[in-house]
Protein backbone atom coordinates (compact mmCIF):
# COMPACT_ATOMS: atom_id res chain seq x y z
CA UNK A 1 0.00 0.00 0.00
CA UNK A 2 1.20 3.48 -0.90
CA UNK A 3 1.99 6.26 1.50
CA UNK A 4 0.37 9.63 0.97
CA UNK A 5 2.02 13.00 1.39
CA UNK A 6 0.08 16.18 0.75
CA UNK A 7 1.70 19.58 1.15
CA UNK A 8 -0.07 22.20 3.18
CA UNK A 9 -1.65 25.34 1.70
CA UNK A 10 -3.17 28.43 3.32
CA UNK A 11 -6.51 26.63 3.41
CA UNK A 12 -5.64 22.94 3.68
CA UNK A 13 -3.35 21.03 6.04
CA UNK A 14 -0.19 19.07 5.42
CA UNK A 15 -1.08 15.37 5.50
CA UNK A 16 1.23 12.38 5.81
CA UNK A 17 -0.07 8.84 5.84
CA UNK A 18 2.55 6.16 6.21
CA UNK A 19 1.51 2.49 6.15
CA UNK A 20 5.06 1.26 6.95
CA UNK A 21 5.24 2.71 10.44
CA UNK A 22 1.52 3.40 10.95
CA UNK A 23 2.00 7.12 11.51
CA UNK A 24 -0.73 9.51 10.42
CA UNK A 25 -0.09 13.25 10.55
CA UNK A 26 -2.38 16.20 9.95
CA UNK A 27 -0.86 19.59 10.48
CA UNK A 28 -1.64 23.24 9.78
CA UNK A 29 -4.92 24.83 8.70
CA UNK A 30 -8.05 23.19 7.48
CA UNK A 31 -10.45 25.88 6.32
CA UNK A 32 -11.62 25.04 2.76
CA UNK A 33 -15.21 25.97 1.80
CA UNK A 34 -15.80 22.38 0.79
CA UNK A 35 -13.79 19.94 2.81
CA UNK A 36 -15.32 16.71 1.50
CA UNK A 37 -13.18 16.72 -1.65
CA UNK A 38 -10.00 17.34 0.27
CA UNK A 39 -10.61 14.61 2.82
CA UNK A 40 -12.01 11.94 0.50
CA UNK A 41 -8.61 10.39 -0.45
CA UNK A 42 -7.62 10.34 3.22
CA UNK A 43 -10.78 8.49 4.24
CA UNK A 44 -10.30 6.04 1.36
CA UNK A 45 -6.69 5.47 2.38
CA UNK A 46 -7.81 4.69 5.94
CA UNK A 47 -10.36 2.16 4.67
CA UNK A 48 -7.59 0.42 2.76
CA UNK A 49 -5.15 0.68 5.65
CA UNK A 50 -7.69 -0.88 8.05
CA UNK A 51 -7.62 -4.11 6.05
CA UNK A 52 -4.03 -4.75 7.02
CA UNK A 53 -2.98 -2.22 9.66
CA UNK A 54 0.22 -1.88 11.62
CA UNK A 55 0.11 -3.33 15.11
CA UNK A 56 0.31 0.22 16.36
CA UNK A 57 -1.16 3.29 14.68
CA UNK A 58 -0.04 6.73 15.86
CA UNK A 59 -2.06 9.76 14.90
CA UNK A 60 -0.69 13.27 15.29
CA UNK A 61 -3.16 16.08 14.80
CA UNK A 62 -1.66 19.54 15.06
CA UNK A 63 -4.11 22.06 13.70
CA UNK A 64 -3.85 25.80 14.00
CA UNK A 65 -7.34 26.43 12.63
CA UNK A 66 -10.16 24.31 11.32
CA UNK A 67 -13.61 25.30 10.13
CA UNK A 68 -16.94 23.59 10.80
CA UNK A 69 -16.93 21.97 7.36
CA UNK A 70 -13.62 20.27 8.20
CA UNK A 71 -14.78 19.32 11.68
CA UNK A 72 -17.15 16.77 10.18
CA UNK A 73 -14.41 15.20 8.01
CA UNK A 74 -12.02 15.10 10.95
CA UNK A 75 -14.67 13.23 12.93
CA UNK A 76 -15.00 10.76 10.06
CA UNK A 77 -11.26 10.11 10.31
CA UNK A 78 -11.50 9.54 14.06
CA UNK A 79 -14.41 7.15 13.55
CA UNK A 80 -12.25 5.05 11.25
CA UNK A 81 -9.63 4.97 13.98
CA UNK A 82 -12.23 4.00 16.56
CA UNK A 83 -13.16 1.02 14.38
CA UNK A 84 -9.50 0.12 14.09
CA UNK A 85 -9.17 0.15 17.85
CA UNK A 86 -12.31 -1.93 18.33
CA UNK A 87 -10.66 -4.53 16.09
CA UNK A 88 -7.99 -4.84 18.79
CA UNK A 89 -5.29 -2.71 17.22
CA UNK A 90 -3.29 -0.24 19.25
CA UNK A 91 -4.27 3.33 18.39
CA UNK A 92 -2.62 6.39 19.91
CA UNK A 93 -4.07 9.81 19.17
CA UNK A 94 -1.96 12.86 19.98
CA UNK A 95 -3.91 16.12 19.88
CA UNK A 96 -1.61 19.14 19.82
CA UNK A 97 -2.78 22.61 20.77
CA UNK A 98 -0.92 25.86 21.22
CA UNK A 99 -0.43 27.33 24.63
CA UNK A 100 -3.45 29.47 25.57
CA UNK A 101 -5.64 28.02 22.79
CA UNK A 102 -8.49 26.76 24.93
CA UNK A 103 -10.87 26.46 21.99
CA UNK A 104 -8.53 23.97 20.32
CA UNK A 105 -8.08 21.97 23.53
CA UNK A 106 -11.86 21.90 23.92
CA UNK A 107 -12.30 20.68 20.35
CA UNK A 108 -9.97 17.78 21.12
CA UNK A 109 -11.98 16.95 24.22
CA UNK A 110 -15.20 17.05 22.20
CA UNK A 111 -13.84 14.54 19.71
CA UNK A 112 -12.50 12.36 22.48
CA UNK A 113 -15.93 12.20 24.12
CA UNK A 114 -17.62 11.26 20.85
CA UNK A 115 -15.31 8.48 19.71
CA UNK A 116 -14.28 6.92 23.00
CA UNK A 117 -10.62 6.54 22.17
CA UNK A 118 -8.42 8.32 24.71
CA UNK A 119 -6.53 11.35 23.37
CA UNK A 120 -3.17 12.52 24.56
CA UNK A 121 -3.48 16.31 24.85
CA UNK A 122 -0.15 17.94 24.15
CA UNK A 123 0.38 21.63 24.74
CA UNK A 124 2.88 23.33 22.47
CA UNK A 125 4.78 26.00 24.33
CA UNK A 126 6.62 28.63 22.28
Amino acid sequence: MESISIEGTTKTPEVKLNPENGVIEIKGRSIPENSIEFYRPIIEWLDEYAKNPNKKTTVNVQLEYFNTSSSKCILDIFKKLETLKKARNEVVINWYYEEDDEDMLESGEDYESIIRVPFKMIEIVD
Partner: peptide
Protein backbone atom coordinates in the same frame (compact mmCIF):
# COMPACT_ATOMS: atom_id res chain seq x y z
CA UNK B 1 -21.22 22.67 23.29
CA UNK B 2 -23.68 19.80 23.57
CA UNK B 3 -25.68 20.91 20.55
CA UNK B 4 -22.46 21.25 18.54
CA UNK B 5 -21.39 17.72 19.40
CA UNK B 6 -24.83 16.31 18.72
CA UNK B 7 -25.03 17.88 15.24
CA UNK B 8 -21.41 17.02 14.46
CA UNK B 9 -22.04 13.40 15.29
CA UNK B 10 -25.41 12.97 13.61
CA UNK B 11 -25.72 15.32 10.69
CA UNK B 12 -24.55 14.66 7.16
CA UNK B 13 -23.28 17.31 4.79
CA UNK B 14 -25.93 19.52 3.21
CA UNK B 15 -26.13 20.08 -0.54
CA UNK B 16 -24.16 23.28 -0.03
CA UNK B 17 -21.30 21.37 1.57
CA UNK B 18 -21.90 22.77 5.04
CA UNK B 19 -22.94 21.03 8.22
CA UNK B 20 -25.12 23.74 9.76
CA UNK B 21 -22.61 24.40 12.51
CA UNK B 22 -21.35 27.87 11.59
CA UNK B 23 -23.68 29.88 13.81
CA UNK B 24 -23.33 27.51 16.74
CA UNK B 25 -19.55 27.56 16.40
Amino acid sequence: KNLYKQILNNQDFTKKGGVGLGLID
